[in-house]
């Protein structure tokens, strides 16, 4: 396959970036999208051109590190798939593919396609955890949890924090991410002790990071590689509003 790539190149956070065109020939349809970038980068090195910086780690769709806005969609054209699990067979010979970084003021571009997603880490640090007692692990059946409930919590916990929801949202809102992180704990008894503070603090941190507000367009859930449901956003709204009313802190 022969592919024309238009890739966002930006030297650093403060530099002005632009789309640059690269031709990649002899692309195997079985290559992953990231392997195709590896091949291109190897060639760029030999041509004395700075390789394209992009985020990647596990390359098996579970770490949430890869982040490319491919032809106008986060993680490219497939549903429920991360960029690393996207293969060149999803494109046609001769295609032009435009690759951009996530765009959000809370995710500033560090270089080329790499954006700074530490805003998500700060949101997690503000409340996305549970208090755990030390000592031996207790018996698994001490905490009976219904299958339905466990399934819902697990579906929310599938969020890998890649930021595709923010990238897809017209408001660059982080509500799907925050709602998944609040939901996975709000649905389980282990999350109960910090339940109110978690919802309040994580929303406050999300707002402080400069993400937009949710207008329920549903673009986030449509583009989420882990298919996190909008139900979680409704749950976060409930958690936040009831915590605001019930929490005794003035």
């Amino acid at each position: 396959m022969n592919i024309t790539l238009k890739v966002w190149r930006q030297k650093n956070q403060n530099a002005k970036g632009a789309l640059e065109t690269y031709k990649v020939s002899d692309v195997s349809p079985d290559m992953s999208f990231l392997e195709m970038f590896d091949v291109l980068n190897e060639r760029l090195v030999t041509e004395d051109i700075e390789p394209i910086a992009f985020d990647h780690d596990c390359r098996e769709g579970i770490c949430g590190t890869c982040s490319m806005y491919i032809n106008g969609r986060p993680h490219g054209p497939l549903e429920g798939v991360t960029t690393c699990q996207l293969h060149m067979r999803s494109f046609k010979d001769g295609d032009t593919i435009v690759v951009e970084p996530w765009r959000a003021s809370a995710f500033p571009v560090i270089k080329d396609l790499v954006v700074d997603r530490t805003a998500f880490d700060r949101i997690i640090a503000s409340g996305g955890f549970v208090s755990v007692n030390t000592g031996n692990a207790q018996d698994a059946n001490n905490l009976p949890i219904g299958k339905d409930q466990a399934d819902k919590a697990f579906a929310a916990a599938a969020c890998i924090g890649c930021g595709a929801c923010v990238a897809a949202c017209k408001n660059a809102s982080a509500m799907l991410f925050v709602s998944a992180k609040v939901s996975q704990l709000a649905l389980l008894p282990q999350g109960e002790p910090e339940r109110e503070k978690r919802a309040l603090n994580m929303v406050a941190q999300m707002d402080a990071e400069g993400f937009g507000a949710c207008t329920n367009t549903g673009a986030c859930a449509a583009e989420c590689p882990k298919e996190i449901s909008l139900d979680n956003i409704a749950r976060l709204n409930r958690e936040f509003l009831s915590a605001s009313v019930a929490n005794p802190e003035v």
Binding site: K6, W8, L19, Y69, G72, V98, E100, R103, A104, S105, A106, K170, N171, A172, S173, G210, F211, G212, A213, T215
Partner: peptide, 10 residues
Amino acid sequence: NRQARPVGYA
């Protein structure tokens, strides 16, 4: 909300 995405997509 517009401020949350100062640079748009091509």
